[in-house]
Design a protein around this nucleic acid. Structure first.
Lengths: 153, 153
DNA sequence: TATGAAATAATATAGTT
DNA sequence: AACTATATTATTTCATA
């Protein structure tokens, strides 16, 4: 299951538009529709393509604010970590979370309707998870490069 | 162009699988295929749906490392900002970039093949952009919650 | 103004070479 | 892998609420 140049071209094209008709993907790949269709299915089966997602405009959905919250846990004892991660998974406004290096333990991506809502999420939800020692919020002012595509070169 | 409960249900369903057949989306929405098809097109035209993206496994593409790099610029003079943002847009391994609040100016999301590659990107590319004063790297150790869906209330 | 059912058009997939 | 045939899916039309 190695990924060759055709696969990379297909993936690059799907990153432009994941719903582009197979025939059009085929054109750009210098291949016909059949092998492109089969390759896409194989990439899905092999777990290279994990799924398909619409790119939504958060503002049009009433989510005006985006923030990255760095979180520190107290000495990792008992079920500290499990409890924290479970609370994170349960919170719909936490749209991503990573365990990270550095003086903070987690980097959490939060979306919110407005400043008050963001404050409520950090103070009432995140800071109150048992075991959480400290939170530092980094608020997004402007998006210079929207998170879209992975390099395939 | 207000978004009603049907639209929200459609968007939530597409967030599960953006290539789900319209008929199936219709089932889950308690609507028939025709209005679902039209609503999706309208959501696209109105800019609520900005596009469609495959979710790729970075590891299967040889990108083992992910890092968030906080960047500080020197006193914003001349074309400092423009030059920086242009360099960011040009770098394929920078997959996202935001201007942010706090003591750092930008939060940059970087992917890399390995530690050496990441070091090369931060030291040879990012730190050498004219006007960049300081960079702090936060390396992702583990993904607790993958960045997938927006809350639709 | 928006829906649902049927008809048509577009697209994807399977079979064959 | 490509070409052709079949199956699946999307969209348009049209009648209706």
């Amino acid at each position: 299951m190695p990924i060759d140049a055709f696969d990379r071209k297909i993936l690059a094209t799907l990153q432009d538009d994941a719903r582009m008709p197979v025939a059009q993907v085929a054109e750009r790949t210098a291949l016909s529709a059949t092998p492109v269709s089969r390759r896409i299915r194989k990439l899905e089966e092999d777990g290279v393509i994990l799924g398909y997602q619409p790119v939504l405009d958060p503002r049009r959905l009433g989510l005006e604010l985006s923030a990255y919250v760095l979180i520190n846990l107290e000495a990792h004892r008992d079920g500290n970590i499990e409890r924290f991660e479970s609370a994170i998974l349960d919170n719909d406004y936490v749209i991503a979370c990573h365990a990270v290096t550095g003086d903070m333990d987690y980097l959490v991506h939060v979306v919110a309707r407005d400043v008050e809502h963001l404050s409520q999420i950090t103070l009432k939800s995140l800071l109150r998870i048992p075991g959480v020692r400290d939170v530092k919020s980094i608020i997004v002012l402007e998006t210079v490069k929207p998170p879209r595509r992975l390099p395939l070169g």
